[in-house]
Design a protein around this nucleic acid. Structure first.
Lengths: 139, 139
DNA sequence: AATAGAGTTAACGTAAACGTCAAGATAAAC
DNA sequence: GTTTATCTTGACGTTTACGTTAACTCTATT
């Protein structure tokens, strides 16, 4: 397996962010690439963490919250059951956060449906109500 | 009907924000309460707009984006069909934004499921996989 | 050997979204 | 009629999440 590695500008281009963002995320402890001499070398795992970070950002999480979420993904499984239980509790907490956001989305979409119907009504048109508001493959 | 009205601190307490936030949102054009003398008086409609704003904030929208969303809700229906079509296009755009966020949530939840299963596996437990990750009353 | 290209740290700048005084107006309560 | 509470408008401060030079280093050519 060809353990792929990336330079800072590789990742920056791939995700249309700037190198500065990657250095900043590193400063905040989100990603910690190894170094080749002084230059940063990003692994596939680092890339995954970056993806997670950017998803979190799109959802409005702070970098601190994102760091907590990312740390859940750490494949270095702890042996200590207490740490595992701690992980599970954190997991459930973050799941709640996400479900709350999901509900916010749903309510906003519902309200938008009403607006659309009203607008369509004013336009004198008619159409099948409440369709395609969410992708249907929810699970 | 008892057209309910609210003071700035009424709304602040109700939503656990500060008056400063309400004044700031007004400055940015999100809410425009009428005045009793010099004091702000918030209507039921203003309250609704505030709820929308806070939902948008929880989802990570900027105040500018939130303003756009809120304006969609304006019950003063335009007569001009071109404006209505414009409204409909905007509506679809915002829906897309929301659906993107929804997909981000779903992917994060899926990844969390995997982590949980791994942790439970390490704990030597077993359980019904992939349940209760989202509220079931999606529509 | 000089030049270009990509990387580095350090430091200051900035936009967004408020927080935090300060100083005054106003209305209600005593 | 004066304290008390609540409001107002500035105006400056703060945190987050980067942007933007600046000054250097290090290979990699040419």
């Amino acid at each position: 397996m060809a353990t792929t590695e990336y330079s800072i500008s590789d990742l920056a281009q791939a995700f249309t962010i700037t190198p500065r963002t990657l250095r900043f995320y590193e400063m905040r402890g989100l990603i910690t690439p190894k170094r080749h001499g002084v230059s940063r070398v990003y692994s596939e795992k680092d890339k995954v963490r970056l993806e997670l970070a950017l998803r979190g950002k799109r959802l409005g999480f702070s970098l601190e919250e994102i760091k907590e979420i990312i740390e859940l993904y750490d494949p270095s499984q702890p042996e200590d059951p207490r740490q595992l239980y701690f992980l599970l509790r954190k997991l459930h907490q973050k799941r709640k956060d996400l479900i709350n956001k999901f509900n916010d989305i749903r309510e906003t979409l519902n309200a938008m449906d009403i607006i659309e119907e009203r607008a369509l009504g004013t336009l004198g048109k008619r159409q099948n109500p409440r369709v395609n508001q969410l992708p249907l493959d929810i699970d």
